[in-house]
Design a protein around this nucleic acid. Structure first.
Lengths: 217, 217, 217, 217
DNA sequence: TATGAATGAGTGTTCATTCAT
DNA sequence: TATGAATGAACACTCATTCAT
């Protein structure tokens, strides 16, 4: 081992408000661009290595900027992640209202299918952020509560649709909704891992499964 | 006279075979017990913090032993995880053959249900290990390939059962099997996270969903 | 909220090319100066304690810089030593061509004497490096081959001078050259150890011995 | 990496008298044999890696005994080395009186030659000990003084022989004697390192060099 | 606004030494 | 007399964060 090992500042600055640029000076065009580069770079690196294994150095290299610059825009690594989470929250939040009533027929299937597509797209864009968030939350006991609020939102609106459609006997709408979100999430993750594509066919299969399991009379 | 100045190995070695005590000395009763304590402690700590955030120090504290002792049994943190993975692999591997033919009727449901129960139990026992494994794999590009072999095994045998039961139109057995495993896995994770129990009702719901989705004629 | 839990590289790396700054970033003036300070400090510490007993901490203290800075310029202690060895190699290599033909008369003695002076000077400058190198080589079986190449160079050119001068009966030029280098090297070491100076008189004695032994008709 | 690294007890026991078995109980046959095994093993290991890089573990393995047993006979690693040094001292000390008057003729050469042979033999037996001793002394400033006492003895008696033979002009007998010892010592070391044998021819060459340099009228 | 250099707390790992059996 | 297990002080090395330019 690898040799030896790694640090963790005691709790150094940590002064800045999360999700806000380190100093709240209004950003000019140049500034915005640099900040964007850092956010995008962070997503790439988080995707590759997860939150803990991601080095500020990696992020900075991918963004083709310097260490000093990083701290011009974010007060620390966690701050950057929070900014990303906020961004993801907006997109994922939109899914709350993206699913209409799901009927037992082909029309219901189609409704479910378009929602599945949106979900997939959002997931593929922001999965690294969620993953990183989970990493952070896990190693930080104080954080657990706030976590998964977004995911919870999606599950809640899905649960409503299940409940209103008169679910099959023995199905708890809340558990079922959770299970569906779980399935989609982890399925994407596995596929991404194995390198297999998440294509139309795969989404069709998922849709059919959910439709049959919960909405097919 | 100065303290006996002790030097250093030229190279940290890092050679140990995974899943084996650091040096393959045969373990006596005492030794086995200590090793077990360390493995169990590691599961606890991995569960709490994930692989990267887990400190050898934490593990050692939970196991009520010393830093040096750790390295008597494992050549490093990764080695310990590999031992755990091997152990988990055996248990999870048993699931391969645990699912019989699933018929569309109540009997089929029952078959599926007992498998779900076994899966749940195995998961609850070894989830931290899988999670840690994922952490490690993600930060180490060389590892990706070997990963998820176990999970793959379970999915494969499930895919066979789906295929033999004559799956509904538009269902790809392989993708479906993957999706089911994904659902169960992540559902458990979410529940564990939120602190809600994974009770009989929840497993019933999952079983019903899978049965309806894939095996209900 | 917990401190930002920072993780660890999967593997200690240990990849760096010897004699090069840890990452080959081009060095500015400031950087060069710091690197020089570290190299000089290392020579001092290696001289005092030898390679193995030398602590990075000692080097860093003498250089009046920090631990982290050390690893900014060298990937590890061995890397630093290799840089030093490369440097020494250049100086010592110059000795190869520093000895002209040695005649049996006073002129020959003078030629030998000036060479002895150069040798002594080079030795006094880089002895700690050679000593450290020996320490390292001894504890690392993989290295043995490359070692002493420089010393070999000096001995070879000396052997040529001996051979061309028609050496006394029973003298093997190669063994003799080796013996001379050995003598000068170790003599310096002993003197340094005992604290006695290596003055003109001592070098005169050495020169006379060598001249009488090998070049005096 | 090698990774990381190495310890050094602050100054733990260090109670025992150096060069004496840890507890002075009279040793039975069995005990003597075990102690001998350890001393021999230590020589092997010191030869291979030097004092600092030698691990008690290595010694114990070569001696085919256990850690605990080591400390039954020696109070620490340094203690073992001291025992070895004492042993070497006796053998090397015998060289003091091994050199008779050296005349300028063939008889003088022969006298020198037999002494050279004895020296070579002693060296080949105990060189690792001297080397280890040097390692220890270097990293321990308080020790410097006592060092090389044995070597000094040999040099002194040689210096006497040089002085009594009426040395050439410009030769300081003490420096010359030191130089001769230095040459023989280091020559052996270099040869051992390179793997070339130290054969009769080599010793003849050394003898001729010394005889011509210092005793040839 | 940007950067390269510096810092040092924190962590993995080693190995001399002690101890219970 | 012998042993395997346990211990923990030391040390190499990493990387988040700060700072001078």
């Amino acid at each position: 081992m690898q040799p030896a090992t790694a640090p963790r500042r005691a709790r150094p600055a940590k002064a800045a408000v999360a999700g806000e640029p380190a100093s709240k000076r209004a950003l000019r065009t140049q500034g915005r661009k640099t900040m964007r580069k850092l956010l995008d770079a962070a997503m790439v690196v988080f995707a590759r290595r997860g939150y803990h294994a991601a080095r500020v150095d990696d992020i900075v290299k991918v963004a083709r900027t310097s260490h000093g610059t990083f701290y011009l825009y974010f007060s620390n690594k966690e701050d950057l992640l929070r900014a990303l989470v906020a961004e993801a929250g907006e997109v994922v939040g939109a899914l709350d209202s993206a699913l209409g009533t799901v009927t037992p027929d082909a029309e219901g299937w189609a409704e479910l299918r378009q929602w599945m597509g949106q979900f997939s797209e959002a997931w593929q864009r922001y999965a690294p952020v969620l993953r990183a968030w989970t990493d952070l939350v896990m190693s930080d006991t104080e954080l657990s509560a706030q976590a998964h609020a977004a995911a919870g939102g999606v599950a809640r609106s899905l649960a409503m649709r299940i409940a209103e459609s008169g679910p099959p006997a023995g199905i708890d709408p809340n558990a079922a909704a959770e299970a569906v979100v779980a399935m989609i999430d982890r399925f994407h993750q596995l596929r991404q891992f194995s390198g297999e594509p998440i294509d139309e066919d795969a989404l069709d299969t998922l849709t059919t499964m959910v439709h049959r399991a919960l909405f097919a009379g």
